[in-house]
Amino acid sequence: MLRDILMSVSKKMQIDFEGITSIIQHNGEKGTARENILEEYLKSYIPEKYSFSKGTIVDCKDVQSRQVDIIIHDKFLTPYLVDMDNTKIVPIESVYGVVEVKSTLTKEELRKCVKNIESVRKLEKKTISDFSFPTAGLVFAYDSDASLETVYKNLNEISADVEVDKRISCVCVLNKGIILPVEKNGMTNVSLLPSDNTIYGIFNNANDALLLFYLILTQILNSITIFPPDMVAYAQSTDILDTSFSIPADYVPDDGTISIMDKMVSISEIKNLRDYGTKFLSGKLRKEDFLEYAFETCIQNLLLVHKSLDLVPGNSTLDFFGVPINNKVIINAYKIFRRSGEITPNEKKIVDDLENLMYTIYDNHRGEMLKNNS
């Protein structure tokens, strides 16, 4: 029964199309007529959750597709960015597939279809769940100026420089047949989307073309799950809205983290470094307290930059008030200073020598620090 229904629809579709286009001379109006005919009939057989629109598709990086004839998108999960005069700008995350509709599919029209669908399938998806499915791209033609075999040859030729996963999913020529991806392994199973494991196959079924197109489109729609777009990402990545924010210092949580030099650092570490640094640069340190603050300030800075003290280059230096001090010397003295067990006289001399050097330099700049903090 379904086949009989769709065959009668196919015949009526061609009659309607021929009747409309015979009295419409303007190309733009002809195009609108053919798209409307296909859209109206598809709506009769596809669930209401799917919406059909005309317009452009955009991603969160503000990259836009070329204009496509029919956008099939989720009726309930699509935030329209623009909706004027029945032309919409739709976020790519809400789109199941697009259909290019042609009255006569010439090689040049096929080339436009390939480029238009590629522009859609190249868009980046950013959903609230970080999961997404590929968007399908189909071509529906009422006729072609060449045989289906020639259309097949042209499709492969034009698609040669297009990434496989950005290619057309289905080409239907209503009075001739369909071109679909077929799995290379066995070359018997139809695939919904082209991939490295598929090759296009020709289905010479002129009488059943509409039925097969409908079934393929339905299968594609049923196999795709739409996750809502991350609209905050749209705002942030395009700088359309200022989404910068601040948190008052008193409310910054100690267990929060921020990225510094590709390393996640806890707020408590930052506050600790700030407290030691503030005390160190106050100019008020006594010698007996000096190494504690000097080490914590220097070592924490090295950890922020290099992530590990073992990764600090042997020839790197600390600019200590204009005097270069080898970082490895500081690290070695720090490890001795922090050791819980006994240290040898030689080790004590290493720590004392560094303390005397750094404190002398510090003391020479004490007046300047006190003045800056007064």
Rank of each mutant, 00 (worst) to 15 (best):
K348V: 00
T297D: 08
G177E: 01
I330A: 08
L105Q: 00
L354Y: 12
T127D: 06
S374P: 10
N327A: 15
N327P: 08
I5A: 07
N356L: 11
P324V: 05
V68Y: 09
K30D: 15
S308H: 04
L354R: 09
E288Q: 09
L174R: 03
N346S: 15
D353R: 01
A209P: 08
L273A: 02
L212Q: 01
T243R: 05
T127V: 09
S159G: 03
L303I: 00
S259V: 13
K348P: 02
L155Y: 06
E269Y: 05
T150P: 05
F213P: 05
F337S: 10
A33M: 09
Y276F: 13
V9N: 01
N207F: 11
V164K: 07
Y200N: 08
L81F: 11
T198A: 06
D242T: 00
I199P: 02
K279C: 05
I158Y: 13
K307T: 03
V58C: 11
E342N: 15
S169G: 02
I24L: 12
S169E: 07
F52A: 11
I240A: 07
K284S: 12
T297P: 03
V252S: 00
I216R: 01
R274K: 10
K271E: 09
K271H: 08
A160G: 01
I336D: 06
T198P: 08
N326I: 14
I89Q: 02
L138E: 06
I325N: 11
M369G: 10
L311V: 04
N346F: 12
E292R: 12
K107W: 07
L285H: 05
G314N: 12
D255G: 03
L370F: 12
I37W: 09
F295S: 04
G97I: 08
I258Q: 06
N372F: 11
M1K: 11
I267H: 07
I325E: 08
I72P: 03
T317C: 13
V173P: 03
R111D: 14
Y334D: 03
I240V: 00
G137T: 04
G277T: 15
T238C: 04
S195V: 00
Y251A: 14
M7Q: 15
Q25A: 15
D310G: 09
D16E: 14
V323I: 14
K49I: 00
E93W: 08
I70E: 09
